[in-house]
Design a protein around this nucleic acid. Structure first.
Lengths: 140, 140
DNA sequence: TTATTCGTATCTAATTTAGATACAAAAAGG
DNA sequence: CCTTTTTGTATCTAAATTAGATACGAATAA
């Protein structure tokens, strides 16, 4: 599972497309096809990363804090990240040369790979996604 | 969870370090600190990718099919891969412009990111990991 | 023929994920 | 000031995933 990164990008894309008006978590839930509660759980991360702001009450809802061009998938991934990309196995055998030393070695190499992934994600923005989506729409 | 990639690298590293002799899944289980059955489930993937061979019976066990220098983390990741790196959310709303078009757009962008990750993993070999592990051992 | 080891299947417990509901607090409008 | 809308958060549940555990036939060597 863990489609939360995809849901986060979907959410930000919807906000980018409707940049002129506030959008509610109810509406985003309809687009994603899930309940508003789940959307709000995702929004918690995006708010903590200062990618969106929200307001309660009539006419309330969500808004991007930056231009879609200035929100990269790297920012979104980092905002949503709760676990390592490649989890380690714990409690390896300290009496084995490999078991005793593998953890920090893997941690280091995996961190390098994750850094390269972030670099790749940094090249794509929510504006790119929104453009792709709207272009696809025209094709029909 | 899903520490299987880490366990797979650990397993191949152990085989690289003990390249002169056959190693059993029991022994690897001890190093990883898990049961042989789990190791054998991981090995299933590595065997399918032709990274190891195995033999039953007395004096049996596992062996690398290539030099550790010729086994990259990309090969291991690809061998162990069972799901997409970034899972998509399904059943988005077809009546919403975003919901109707986001899936293929995300699939494409996420595949690009995964390809870049593979490129990064291709630069590291099991020999590199084994060397790091043995060097760390000397430091003590 | 016996002991060892693999390959696979099955069961279980713990964890994660997402769907669902509920409700206080915030905000806007009349 | 009261009502309505919407957020933010908590809680519960069901489904899926993960890994630990056990078992057993098949393969292999001695």
């Amino acid at each position: 599972m863990n489609s939360q990164f995809a849901v986060a990008v979907h959410t930000l894309t919807a906000l980018a497309v409707s940049r002129d008006q506030r959008v509610t978590s109810e509406q985003i839930g309809e687009s994603v096809n899930t309940n508003p509660s789940f959307i709000r759980r995702v929004l918690k991360h995006l708010r903590a990363a200062h990618l969106v702001t929200s307001r309660s009450g009539v006419g309330g809802g969500l808004q991007l804090t930056k231009a879609p061009e200035d929100i990269s998938l790297q920012m979104v991934y980092t905002a949503m990240r709760t676990t390592d990309l490649f989890p380690l196995h714990a409690n390896t055998n300290p009496d084995c040369p490999v078991g005793n030393n593998i953890a920090p070695v893997l941690a280091h190499r995996f961190a390098d790979a994750e850094a390269d992934l972030l670099e790749s994600l940094a090249k794509v923005s929510i504006a790119d996604i929104a453009r792709d989506v709207l272009e696809r729409r025209q094709e029909i």
